[in-house]
């Protein structure tokens, strides 16, 4: 589904060029649960932004579903962000003073056509927040806010869900709940790409890619999770 070939990314500030990603080669198949790990400033978030069509690469190739992303115009990238991917951010990024229901509906406003209200209800139900539908975003706990963000990411039934440090602002109990939801979504067929610097969070993924100083230093399967997932399937 995703293939990165010799991807490089530089940030240019006036005359100063700062390399952020170097020689990234990566393939991600449909249905994977991948964690991109690395210390702060390693380039993992930049990689996620490029994968999620929020940022553009400086050189190399990004093939998404057999299409070269570099050839896509702004409007098509916006449609991809709307239809193909969903984002969960560390700081939730919910609309302030706006209800849970309206927050989850947001991507549908940009989908063209009439808003299918059932989709909103289903997305909220899938994170078990139906009872909070009419609450304003500022009336929710951190864990609930992140569940709303997940529902918003899900509402258009995207192929990939990107989660950037989704447990970073949560207590451990809420963090565990969020990771359980992401695992459930992966089990339902969504590809989940997680960006984190926490081993505890990354351990929920089936594959872990480690980045350091803008380069991939390791790419390995997380056997523990694979065994757990298989056990779950047998049950």
């Amino acid at each position: 589904m995703i293939e990165l070939i010799n991807l490089e990314k530089d940030y240019t500030n006036e005359e100063l060029v700062t390399p952020v990603l170097r020689n990234i080669n990566l393939k991600i198949a449909k249905g994977e649960f991948l964690a991109i790990m690395g210390p702060s400033g390693s380039g993992k978030s930049t990689l996620m932004h490029i994968l999620g069509f929020l940022d553009i690469l400086s050189s190399g190739k990004y093939i998404f579903q057999d299409k070269d992303v570099s050839s896509l115009d702004d409007d098509t990238l916006a449609i991809y962000r709307n239809q193909k991917v969903g984002f969960v951010f560390q700081s939730f990024n919910l609309l302030p003073k706006t209800s849970v229901w309206e927050n989850v509906r947001l991507p549908l406003l940009y989908s063209g056509g009439l808003v299918d209200e059932k989709k909103v209800d289903q997305a909220i139900a899938s994170v078990e927040l139906t009872h909070r539908s009419k609450y304003l975003s500022n009336q929710l706990s951190g864990g609930e806010k992140q569940r709303v963000a997940i529902a918003r990411a899900l509402v258009n039934n995207p192929d990939i869900i990107f989660a950037d440090e989704p447990t970073g602002n949560l207590d451990s109990r809420s963090g565990t709940q969020i990771m359980a939801i992401l695992q459930k979504l992966n089990a339902e067929g969504h590809t989940v790409i997680l960006v984190t610097h926490e081993t505890n969070t990354a351990k929920h993924a089936k594959r872990i890619v480690r980045i350091k100083d803008g380069e991939i230093v390791s790419d390995e399967k997380n056997d523990e999770q694979i065994i757990a997932a298989k056990t779950e399937l047998v049950k």
């Binding site: 409007d75 709307n82 984002f87 990024n93 940009y110 989908s111």
Partner: peptide, 8 residues
């Protein structure tokens, strides 16, 4: 955020 969820 609006751009991230698909606003042109």
């Amino acid at each position: 955020l609006r751009k991230a969820v698909g606003a042109r």
